[in-house]
C-alpha cells in the first residue's frame, strides 16, 4: 500500500488488514512504555492547511509511538501564504527527506494532486467534503471493538446530519457498506447531495422513524454557516428535527451505539451530554484514533520492519 487517500482506493481487503493491524497497535498502546522502534529513521510530515489540532496530534502521537520523526507544517504560518505554490512547498519538504505526508486541506482532491509531485506516501487527513479515511477506520474499529463483530452484516447504521458537506459521511458510507452494514441517511433534502441514487443507502427525512431500528446512530456535526447559506432555516429548527435529545435517546434500542466524529456542537446536533448516553462510544473514537493511525503509518512505511522490540 503506497497511499491512503480514500476508502474506495483502500478496498475491503485493505480495510480489514488495517483493522487487524490496529489490534496490534492497541496492544502496544496498553504497554507501560507504549513505543516501538518500527519506523525509526522514517520521517512523517504533517501538512495541515486547515486547523485540526485533534487530528494532527493523533497522527503525530502515532508516528512518535512508532519512533518515526515528525515535522509539522502549519501552513497558515508558512510560505504558502507568501505566494509559494503548493507544488513548490511539497517539493521543498520532499527534498528534506520525508517518507509520508499527512495532508489536511479544505479543497477536494489535494492528496491526489500532491501524490503527483512527490515520491512520498500520502495520507489523506481530510480533503474538503470528500474523504477522511482514517476517521472511517477509527469508526469501524470502534464499532468492532464494541460489538465484537468481525463484519457488519445485518447491522443497521444511521448517519444523521449534514451529509452534503461531510467528508466523514462519504468515507463512512463507503466503509460501513463495504463491511456489510445497511446504512440509512437522515437529513433534510437540503443537506443531502443532489443525486445519491447510486449510493448503497436508504434515505429518510424523519429521525424518529428510524431511531428504534438503528444499531448505530452516527451524529454528524452541523456547522453554523449552513444557516447563512440557507440549508436550514435556523439551528433551533434543525436541532428539533435532527438533534439528539434526551427523548430520542430514550427511543433508542438498549444496546444501540451513539457516535460522533467530534468536535461536537452542543445544543445543535447534540442536545445532551454524551456521557448521559449509556452506549456512547465518542470517547472510544478519540482513544482509538492513535492506534488506527499507527496501523496506517506502519502499513505504508514499515515494510521490512516488524513490531517487536523496545524503543
Amino acid at each position: 500500500m503506497k497511499h491512503l487517500r480514500s476508502i474506495d482506493e483502500l478496498g475491503l481487503d485493505g480495510l480489514n488488514k488495517l483493522l487487524q493491524l490496529t489490534d496490534h497497535m492497541a496492544e502496544i498502546n496498553q504497554r507501560p512504555v507504549p513505543k516501538v522502534p518500527a519506523l525509526r529513521g522514517r520521517t512523517v510530515a504533517s501538512l495541515f492547511f486547515e486547523d485540526s489540532t485533534r487530528t494532527r496530534l493523533s497522527f503525530e502521537t502515532a508516528a512518535k509511538r512508532l519512533s518515526a520523526d515528525t515535522m509539522t507544517f502549519n501552513v497558515s504560518t508558512s510560505s504558502v501564504n507568501k505566494g509559494e505554490s503548493l507544488r513548490d512547498t511539497v517539493a521543498t519538504i520532499t527534498d528534506m527527506g520525508v517518507d509520508a505526508f499527512v495532508v489536511r486541506h479544505k479543497s477536494v482532491g489535494i492528496p491526489w494532486q500532491i501524490s503527483a509531485w512527490t515520491t512520498a506516501s500520502i495520507i489523506n487527513a481530510g480533503d474538503g467534503a470528500h474523504q477522511h479515511p482514517t476517521q472511517a477506520l477509527v469508526d469501524c474499529y470502534t464499532i468492532r471493538e464494541a460489538t465484537h463483530a468481525q463484519n457488519f452484516a445485518g447491522m443497521k447504521v444511521t448517519i444523521v446530519g449534514d451529509i452534503k458537506h461531510s467528508r466523514v459521511a462519504r468515507s463512512n458510507i463507503q466503509a460501513f457498506s463495504m463491511l456489510g452494514a445497511k446504512v440509512t441517511l437522515v437529513a433534510p433534502p437540503t443537506l443531502l447531495p443532489p443525486d445519491i441514487s447510486h449510493w448503497p443507502v436508504d434515505v429518510s427525512h424523519d429521525l424518529d422513524e428510524v431511531l428504534a431500528e438503528s444499531d448505530v446512530l452516527y451524529m454528524l456535526r452541523l456547522q453554523s454557516e449552513r444557516m447563512a447559506q440557507g440549508h436550514v432555516p435556523t439551528l433551533r429548527e434543525y436541532s428539533e428535527q435532527y438533534g439528539l435529545t434526551q427523548k430520542r435517546v430514550m427511543g433508542l434500542r438498549s444496546n444501540a451505539i451513539v457516535m460522533h466524529p467530534g468536535p461536537m456542537n452542543r445544543g445543535v446536533e447534540m442536545q445532551i451530554d454524551p456521557s448521559d448516553v449509556k452506549n456512547s462510544l465518542i470517547h472510544r473514537q478519540v482513544a482509538n484514533g492513535v492506534s488506527v493511525r499507527m496501523a496506517v503509518l506502519f502499513e505504508l512505511l514499515g515494510s521490512g520492519s516488524n513490531l517487536g522490540g523496545q524503543a
Binding site: 470528500h130 461531510s166 443525486d195
Partner: peptide, 18 residues
C-alpha cells in the same frame, strides 16, 4: 461551483454547477 451537478460531484463532495 467546480463541476457539473451530477453523481460524480456528489461522490467528490464538490459544489455542483447545475
Amino acid at each position: 461551483a467546480v463541476m457539473n451537478e451530477c453523481r460524480c460531484c456528489t461522490d467528490l463532495g464538490l459544489p455542483g454547477w447545475p
